[in-house]
Design a protein around this nucleic acid. Structure first.
Lengths: 344, 344
DNA sequence: CTTGCCCAAGAAAGCGTTTTCTCAGGTCGC
DNA sequence: GCGACCTGAGAAAACGCTTTCTTGGGCAAG
């Protein structure tokens, strides 16, 4: 019988025996090496087909020193942003016959380095998505992770392309939009403290405040999910702001839902904006004004950059910067007279 | 110098040389084998730490015959349902130090079998998520994919646990709910034709129709995303139905958005229901009435089942069936007099 | 007819681990 | 004091593949 292999699976040896040739020849045929006699090649192929032989990728990986797999580590797989990046990455990588291994750090920044290292060792390259670790730590481990591509984070370590979204500019665009609508009291519902993109937004708001001293901008603590927005209703109302910049679309949706429950009208009473333009943003009622980030493209670009690194190609454009595009929908509208002065 | 290995990475050999012992001993120490002299063990550990040695998982996998990785193949990574399953699976697997490799078939059912095979060979087990392939094909390839767990699909092949959601019951519950509200004309916005869960829903509706001959149920073609729902507005209005059962929450949201644009009130003019209870469902306006599927739990259970298979444990409960729970929110309300008879 | 080449296919050496097998040295018992 | 037993560590085989190295046979040229 066949099945001589210890693992019980059909191996190259089985095919070699069946075809009456050596392992080497089978390998050559399977890899399209043309120095094999056509007759023998045909015999090998027939044997392989009959045994339904499929090369063991692990053995192959060991011999070849590559796994045809890349890893991605994300802080939270529940976040639509990271899901979209993952999707874009997976799609692009699949086009080049690469697979994607995922590692979710669940926002535990202390785990990221270990997770990244483990993932990297199993893969040919790694995408580190919005890592929460410190700059110092990131810079320290970056070399050991090469080929490495960063998303929404930069590092001083050499040879690490970064794809960053200009959240600072995006948040300024949104603020400008609200000011144009007559809002003079704004509030920012911040994101996770360790998020670099939150830092960029805060910087952007500082620039905005410098340029618009007459506008009042209240900072509110927050997070990155629905509930954050939903629970922030009181704080938002208390601030007296009429234009709210939520950290992202999720927070904005939660907030709108909360406002709705309070009987407040968006945008009649309060204007709400999001960030990211996740697919759902278009379908909220009212449709959400937001800053669109070309997020799937980000995942795809990450693969392009990583592929260049893996192939050791000269990378003409190491990393790139993405500008969000203001997407005005119906969750923003003209400011009405400040509620505190409504009696006047 | 160190770095004798061809790959340029630190290998077990480097540690062995540095510690002045054999490969075997290093391996023993790294794997916590206690038959090693404590002094030598300490020397090895010191050498490993100094060289920052990390075992190569590929070599390890080859020797051990396992990869500590499982694969999941989904028809569409953009679908929140599959994202949630992936998340649950990944989380549960990570708890047992397993990683997840993803394969997206992009709804191309002809690719599924190849994709599944490739993924399986790199992994210790596979989760096949709502495969679109035919029953015959599924049954044929199932044995070669073992250990295998199916989600939302069953097969006659032996030893393949299935986790299925009782979509038929769920859809009946929703229909009953609408009837209780006085609706007599319903419409079902179907999902992808190849989706087994769509088939289950259709069966459920047949049962429902049999039990409620007085209720008119119109079948409308559809899909599984926002746009499907958004584009279905005309067909829905044409049907004259006042209670709409959308294939899932996404479709329902698209439909509500479309109805809103037409100036129609939900649930005043038309009641809309979804399915799945994705996180967003709670935050739509109006909040969506839907059938909640314990979807993250599904991913987690998939891992439990797969783990049992991998460990060759006796599996007391091979597979299980999940009952959706009706989640009544505010997108459904009392039926108003049929519009076609409004003048009466 | 012999010598030298070239080519195709087999033999064997990796790839980086784990694990069995083997053997040297020490301990204990008689 | 010598042989049996045991322990701990090195040697080597195994995992399944790719690839270099080797070899034998066929062919052309001298």
């Amino acid at each position: 019988m066949v099945r001589k292999s210890a693992t019980g699976r059909i191996g190259i040896a089985d095919v070699a025996i069946k075809a009456g040739v050596s392992h080497a020849t089978v390998s050559r045929v399977m890899n399209g090496n043309f120095t094999v006699d056509p007759d023998i090649a045909a015999r090998v192929r027939a044997a392989a087909a009959e045994l339904k032989y499929q090369p063991n990728p692990v053995g192959r990986s060991l011999a070849l020193g590559k796994t045809d797999t890349i890893g991605i580590v994300v802080p939270d797989l529940a976040n639509p942003t990271f899901q979209a990046i993952l999707r874009g990455l997976s799609r692009a990588a699949a086009q080049d016959s690469y697979r994607v291994l995922i590692a979710d750090s669940f926002e535990v920044s202390s785990e990221e380095a270990i997770l990244a290292g483990e993932a990297r060792r199993r893969c040919d390259g790694l995408v580190l998505c919005a890592p929460r670790m410190s700059d110092a730590e990131l810079e320290e481990i970056a070399p050991s992770l090469h080929p490495l591509v960063l998303i929404n984070r930069t590092t001083a370590a050499a040879g690490v392309p970064s794809l960053v979204v200009d959240y600072g500019q995006g948040v300024q665009d949104i603020a400008e939009h609200l000011v144009d609508l007559g809002h003079t009291r704004l509030a920012f519902l911040a994101g996770p403290p360790r998020s670099a993109s939150n830092g960029l937004r805060l910087q952007g708001l500082e620039s905005f405040k410098a340029a618009h001293p007459q506008v009042e901008v209240t900072m509110l603590e927050g997070g990155s999910d629905f509930d954050t927005g939903h629970e922030a209703v009181d704080a938002v109302l208390e601030s007296g702001a009429t234009g709210i910049l939520a950290f992202n679309d999720l927070v904005a949706m939660g907030l709108m839902s909360g406002l709705h429950e309070r009987g407040l009208d968006v945008p009649g009473d309060i204007s709400v904006t999001g960030f990211d333009d996740i697919p759902f943003a278009k379908y909220t009622t009212p449709a959400l004004t937001t800053a669109a980030v070309p997020i799937t493209e980000l995942g795809e670009q990450a693969w392009q950059q990583l592929r260049a690194l893996i192939r050791k190609e000269e990378n003409e454009a190491p990393g790139s910067r993405y500008q969000p595009r203001l997407e005005v929908r119906s969750s923003t509208g003209p400011a009405k007279a400040p509620r505190t002065a409504a009696h006047g």
